[in-house]
Design a protein around this nucleic acid. Structure first.
Lengths: 234, 234
DNA sequence: CGACGCATGTGCGCGAGTTCACAAAGCGCT
DNA sequence: AGCGCTTTGTGAACTCGCGCACATGCGTCG
């Protein structure tokens, strides 16, 4: 086990892409492919090959010139960098539609994020079993977080209750929050928040649709789409 | 109704923020606040005031110097720009855990994205009613898309079936896809794809957690987090 | 009616991230 | 053992978005 290389700061943009690479590498691994070039990986990830190389270079020099990257070793290194060598149990606040779907969604536990608990205010939901976890009263949040040493919380409550939920999570000792409510959470410095807003995603698509339709009306005089960034993977 | 201003191309980064502003403005509107400054809006959105002004300036000059922006009028303009003046029905492919949760999630229809249909391959799911929509066989996808003139599709199937689902959607005439499967979809040019990968979000949080824990071990010799961009809203 | 104050709209410099292009470096074949 | 092919790792140019700072213009108050 080589020592972690001098810990450079990894750009946010790169951190956001590492999971994608990891995903692809895992697929390659199950397909018994044990070596991949930056170009190959770039093709599958839908990005530029130079970007892949630069991204990977932040982890250290784990490629072999003239050959490519060893899939297994690269998986190990990315997992180590992302802190995926051990599980991060998560606690879900809100056992409504979304909360239950998230708890039941297999994709979490598979990737190292077991549901350590799910809580709700509504007594009618207590003890409902979702994917092996029983819904517990909100009061027990703090105790669950502490006993299972949970650092990641998921906010899946209505907008109006989101800030309260976040406050409770922070008070309980959670330091990262994944927020599904369409509000901006205000948290102390040092707490990491990421937001997933489904309606926002749809509205962005709507923008492109709207653009398409006016372009069509005008006899597409507008410049070609080009559509850089996240968008059409041609 | 003023004519749409000479249609400049709006940067992707701005388009991604407009829905956030819209959300906040709607809240202000229901709170009977009919005027807001760029600074006020920026505070609520967690961004810089100059950025807000620049973003809004892409829509035209809809503010009043010395006063601020008229909330109602701004809502109207953003909605127009995003193409939210009329509903965009969506079709959901996959009636599993996630698909059903999405269909049942009120946040969609509220914001102008009614569920125009939900389809699955599994006969056991046919005719299950989710939030007013009956699950239909996959075969009927094309017909549903056509009859309801749907342009947005949601992929909520397992990874292995995601590309097939996308192909079907494109063939049926859908031009925008929201993909929840952790795979890169390959689609023809001109089709817009956005991906929401819950595991990726958690892995990014994991990175920050891991970073925190090694920093703590080293007696936090590392530089302060600072945590720009998406992240802690201090 | 004029002057003052306040918030918008925007030109400009800066920094982060992306991409190009090439030198360094393994591997295999002769 | 050496040569050439392939692919990495990275310096350097470039692009894009961000944020400062300020001039512009509107409303208000005296």
């Amino acid at each position: 086990m080589p020592p972690p290389p001098a810990r450079r700061r990894i750009p946010d943009a790169t951190v956001a892409r590492l999971p994608i690479y990891l995903q692809i590498l895992a697929e390659q691994s199950t397909a018994a492919i044990d070596n991949i070039s930056s170009e190959g990986l770039a093709g599958l990830a839908g990005v530029n090959a130079a970007k892949v190389r630069k991204d990977l270079s932040y982890l250290g020099s784990y490629g072999t010139r003239g050959v490519g990257y060893d899939v297994g070793y690269l998986i190990y290194q990315i997992r180590r960098e992302l802190g995926l060598n051990y599980d991060w149990p998560v606690i879900i606040v809100g056992a409504g539609n979304l909360g239950q779907a998230l708890a039941g969604y297999g994709g979490f536990i598979d990737r190292g994020f077991p549901v350590g608990g799910i809580v709700d205010v509504d007594p009618a939901k207590f003890d409902v079993v979702v994917a092996g976890a029983r819904v517990r009263p909100l009061d027990e949040l703090s105790q669950i977080v502490e006993s299972k040493d949970i650092s990641i919380g998921v906010v899946a409550v209505p907008s109006s209750a989101a800030q309260d939920a976040a406050d409770l999570l922070v008070k309980a000792g959670v330091t990262s929050i994944l927020n599904f409510a369409p509000v901006i959470l205000s948290v102390p410095v040092g707490i990491t928040v990421r937001k997933v807003d489904l309606a926002v995603e749809l509205q962005i698509l709507s923008y492109h649709e709207q653009r398409r339709s006016v372009a069509q009306q005008n006899g597409q005089l507008q410049g070609a789409p080009a559509d850089r960034g996240r968008g059409a993977t041609a």
